[in-house]
Amino acid sequence: MQSPVGIRDVAQRAGVSPGTVSNVLNRPEKVSAETRAKVEAAVRELGFVRHGSASTLRAGHSKTIGLSVIDIGNPFFTDVTAGVEEVASELGYAVILCNSAGSRTKEERNLLVLAEQRVRGVLITPSDEDPTRLDRLRERGISVVLVDHPAHRPDQCSVAVNDIVGGTTAVNHLRAGGATSIGYVTGPLTIRQCIDRRTGAERALGGAVPLRVTEMPAMTPRAGQEAAAKMIAEGELPDAIFCANDLLALGVLRGLMHAGIRVPEDVALIGYDDIDFVAASAVSLSSIRQPTHQLGRVATELLLDECDHPGTHAHQQIMFQPELVVRESTR
């Protein structure tokens, strides 16, 4: 087996000292453009790969960031991740993706692994409101930015969408279409997004009629189909159903159609997130659109600015506004 190419091999090929090669790799501003070009050419010709762990030990951190999400199977987070990776790649960082599945225990294990890997910073959609574990990361010198979750403190960056406005917008649209009774199919009401979307829906109703809430243990198409079956079994269906995300809405749509209930003629239906699938469903779904890709990009820009410029970085709590997208499932 051929021995790996080392700094001495690169130095010999470029006709410079090993120290000069080290400077090109770690402190290029100390080396003339002509010498940098020779060393970089030698690196390419020999296929030299620097030893990442050694540079990590010297710097105290790696050229990686962590991203912790609560549901890796949700296309919403796929789009957020694409935005994160895009900015990270532009700035020479790699991304370690972790899935908490909404479990605090699993999330804490993931954060410990990220800390052990000496990540530069962490982007996280937290599984609950307790900031303790995130404070521990910051005490280790690891920057943290909240994604799809507002910060409630001035020394914390966050990027989120106003889900109360989103819930209000969804129900106002259903009422404008003639709905007088409205159901809300949601995941666990321990999840901040589910709570805020319910709050917005109730705000739109203004106490005139109650919001009929069906809480499910997950936010998946299967859970949505089970929710539809449960609502049908309970008796009279509402005129319209608002779902806390599009995956639930797709399941509700399937459950209603299997029971011979027409959408939107019998029951209007709206989801949340505007993932790609909903425009191509059997009845294209109306939805509340979130700027998912932009969430990932802006959050990463904030995180790396905090990492690279701790002395001048200004913490920001950015709140985007959602957008109504009307399709065939509502009147």
Results as ranks from 00 to 15, higher is better:
139 E>G: 08
232 I>H: 02
231 M>G: 11
229 A>W: 09
156 Q>M: 15
210 P>F: 10
256 L>N: 00
154 P>S: 15
225 Q>A: 14
196 D>Y: 05
182 I>Y: 04
202 E>F: 02
234 E>C: 07
233 A>G: 06
167 G>I: 07
225 Q>L: 11
141 G>M: 05
177 G>S: 10
261 I>C: 02
190 T>A: 12
174 L>W: 03
218 A>G: 13
167 G>A: 10
267 V>D: 00
198 R>I: 04
140 R>F: 09
234 E>A: 15
157 C>G: 15
268 A>F: 01
259 A>I: 06
235 G>R: 02
168 T>K: 15
141 G>W: 01
160 A>R: 01
172 N>D: 14
217 P>N: 06
171 V>I: 13
174 L>T: 06
175 R>I: 15
172 N>Q: 15
169 T>K: 12
175 R>S: 13
212 R>G: 11
138 R>D: 06
216 M>D: 09
267 V>E: 00
153 R>I: 08
233 A>P: 01
253 L>G: 00
208 A>H: 13
242 F>P: 05
177 G>V: 05
249 A>H: 01
186 T>P: 11
256 L>I: 05
251 G>P: 01
257 M>H: 13
172 N>L: 12
214 T>W: 12
215 E>V: 12
203 R>W: 11
183 G>M: 05
241 I>F: 05
138 R>Q: 14
188 P>F: 05
249 A>D: 00
219 M>K: 11
216 M>F: 08
138 R>H: 04
252 V>C: 01
187 G>W: 04
255 G>V: 02
151 A>L: 02
234 E>I: 09
147 V>C: 09
250 L>T: 05
193 Q>P: 12
164 I>T: 11
207 G>V: 11
200 G>M: 02
230 K>E: 15
167 G>N: 10
221 P>F: 01
243 C>E: 03
253 L>A: 04
163 D>Q: 09
247 L>Q: 12
137 L>Q: 03
201 A>H: 03
173 H>I: 06
188 P>R: 08
139 E>W: 04
235 G>Q: 04
150 P>E: 06
156 Q>A: 13
153 R>N: 07
175 R>L: 14
140 R>C: 10
163 D>M: 07
252 V>A: 01
266 D>S: 04
259 A>Q: 03
213 V>M: 07
210 P>Y: 04
251 G>R: 00
135 D>C: 12
259 A>F: 10
224 G>A: 07
137 L>K: 06
210 P>V: 03
268 A>L: 02
144 V>A: 05
268 A>Q: 13
235 G>M: 04
148 D>C: 01
250 L>Q: 03
268 A>Y: 02
249 A>I: 00
208 A>I: 13
224 G>T: 06
156 Q>P: 10
264 P>K: 02
163 D>T: 08
187 G>N: 06
146 L>V: 11
234 E>T: 12
135 D>S: 14
245 N>L: 03
252 V>S: 01
173 H>V: 09
195 I>S: 02
225 Q>E: 14
177 G>K: 03
229 A>I: 07
190 T>L: 11
262 R>K: 12
240 A>E: 05
252 V>Q: 00
210 P>G: 06
153 R>T: 12
223 A>Y: 10
199 T>P: 08
